[in-house]
């Protein structure tokens, strides 16, 4: 004889079983970390984006390519690579600042950042967010930091893994002895595009009516400033190499490249920055590149702040 099926348990212990309204009396987080909620949401959203994972995987290809290149050079060359420290640093610089990586970071920034504020404004979500106990600064910092950390993770994680791999493979050849500061250099070099690109994208997104407009503006700014600075620098008929160098690095990719050169203490530049007949040109002074980068970040964030309002501000 089969046993009778028992009735389903009455879910009285579950809070959801009580459908009446109860007030919330639980703990509340400190108000000073509310921006982190916004940042965390941005990071969570990035993790769910397929495009983000595809572009991140493409970034890794650049490191694989340079690892293979290094292996071939180290084994084919009759001279072992333990003599010059720059031989070890160069693959890291090239992988992090190569065209592939640079455009992937730009793509990720565009993909995740274009709609970050423009999207919220389009669907009136700002009114709901700012009706909670957060300030406009909390919201803005959260959006910026969330995007920055996402880009930073894509830039830094493969680099550090590459570093660990190189250390495991070439420590007997003096790799570790010549690259004490390389992890710090990697982190600093990864921070530069993360901070700069995320700030620019946040500013543009706040001023745009749609994600598409924001993305298009950002891409145009990134690509066109590089091309224009290069053309102007190339066309300058002057014997002052310093001026040419400064002009050719006065663009968004140029600034990132110049700071990275200084961080890694290398003088090799991407092909578009080279002067015909010369193997490479030194980067402009760090103060020059940092000043422009700092100004761009400050202007972008300040500009974004002026556009963040719970309600549309009507004047006049």
């Amino acid at each position: 004889m089969t046993k009778p099926v028992p009735p389903p348990p009455v879910a009285t212990a579950s809070p959801i079983a009580d459908l009446s309204y109860r007030s919330y009396t639980g703990p509340l987080r400190n108000r000073s970390v509310r921006w982190w909620v916004v940042a965390l949401y941005t990071i969570r959203k990035a993790r769910k984006s397929q495009g983000f994972w595809v572009l991140s995987a493409v970034c890794v290809l650049s490191y694989i390519f340079h690892a293979i290149l290094f292996y071939v050079q180290a084994n084919v060359s009759s001279v072992m690579m333990s003599q010059k420290p720059t031989d070890y640093v160069l693959p890291f610089f090239s992988a992090m600042n190569g065209n592939l990586n640079a455009y992937c970071l730009m793509g990720i920034c565009m993909l995740l950042g274009a709609g970050s504020i423009a999207g919220d404004q389009r669907v009136n979500a700002l009114m709901v967010y700012l009706s909670k106990p957060i300030t406009r600064a909390d919201y803005l910092i959260g959006k910026w930091v969330g995007l920055m950390l996402t880009i930073f993770s894509v830039a830094v994680v493969p680099s550090l893994l590459f570093y660990l791999m190189m250390m495991a493979a070439y420590s007997s050849n003096g790799f570790f002895a010549h690259t004490h500061w390389l992890p710090v250099q990697i982190v600093l070099a990864a921070l530069v595009p993360s901070v700069l690109l995320s700030a620019l994208m946040t500013g543009i997104s706040a001023w745009s009516r749609s994600s598409f407009t924001a993305g298009a503006l950002f891409a145009s700014l990134y690509i066109l400033t590089g091309i224009i600075a290069n053309i102007i620098g190339f066309a300058m008929f002057t014997h002052h190499m310093n001026v040419i160098v400064m002009v050719r690095h006065a663009s968004i990719p140029g600034i990132i490249d110049a700071i990275a050169q200084r961080i890694f203490s290398v003088t090799i530049t991407r092909h578009e920055f080279r002067i015909p007949g010369q193997p490479g040109i030194p980067a402009p002074p760090l103060s020059f590149s940092l000043s422009i980068a700092f100004a761009l970040v400050v202007v972008s964030i300040a500009a974004a702040r002026t556009k963040i309002h719970a309600v549309e501000v009507v004047r006049g």
Partner: peptide, 15 residues
């Protein structure tokens, strides 16, 4: 998410 913005810890906010 709006609960977290109001200061609720994530685990309590979802509940």
């Amino acid at each position: 998410y709006t609960g977290e913005l109001a200061g609720m810890p994530a685990s309590l906010a979802i509940g």
